[in-house]
Amino acid sequence: MEALQTLDLTKHYRSGSFTKKNIPALEKVSLSIEQGEIFGLLGPNGAGKTTFVKLILSIVHPTSGSATVLGYPLGQRKLKEYCGYLPENHRYPAFLSAENTLIFFGRLNGLPESTLKEKAHALLETVGLKDWAKVKTKKFSKGMLQRLGLAQALINNPKILFLDEPTDGVDPVGRKEIRDLLLSLKAQGTTIFLNSHLLSEVEMICDRVAILNKGNVVRTGTISELTTQKLAYHIHLSSPLTKEVRERLDQTILPIEYHETSLVVTLHEKPQLNLIIDILRSGGIGIEDMTQQKTSLEDYFIQIMKGENG
């Protein structure tokens, strides 16, 4: 069973008291997320990432389409019992301490009173706020609030965790700690749905991503599927290229990037790779290693956005 499945999920907002202008936020989004995977939703500002999560958690109502979380349709109380959520720019009652904030949200989740305090302390320790348990949240920095938010999202031992910019405002050490925590949650079988602008982080921890632009899913795949340039190869050579071999390679009219003992060739079609290998071998140049060229997720994302937005 999928952890999350959406089918043609659509949301149009209506703005203006009289004109009721229709503003599309999501258009027929169909996604499927397996249990235990970390799934990243990427997209520029206003792409519909937050709306998507809000639809799943019934914070906004869908215009059309359907979705299930762990088999439960949208709007069911049981669905929310299994979910943890860290929204972007979340706020907490200023008069509550970190400990009481977690106890309060634990109560809202319907957790038994007897376990709340213990659970709150354990989570505060996990997110590095153990010494701040009795301090009111109004004294917390952005990064500390983010850690507290993560603890809040975990208070009910969720099976699926929705995180909207979880490392926003967190220092690099804290980011690493959060990444490690997410990976350990994944190892325990928790499904994690991540909205983030920090593509390098997404690349480090996500199994699959979807790219959203103007409410439409424009790409979906594993990190490797998206970042691998299928027709670009990095060829490591046993010795530097001779002048003669280089001339022959230039005659192929393929874009080739030369390095001292390697080259990167971008093919028009796959059989051209044999031609390159033949030229190298006939020139007495051995091939030590050959890998498909990869691009960073960030470069890929920018490339997609440029293409999508003309």
Binding site: L57, Y92, L108
Partner: peptide, 15 residues
């Protein structure tokens, strides 16, 4: 109903 607060409340298993 403030942004950031209402999201948290509505995400909990309460109608």
């Amino acid at each position: 109903l403030e942004k950031g607060m209402v999201d948290l409340f509505l995400s909990k298993p309460l109608n």
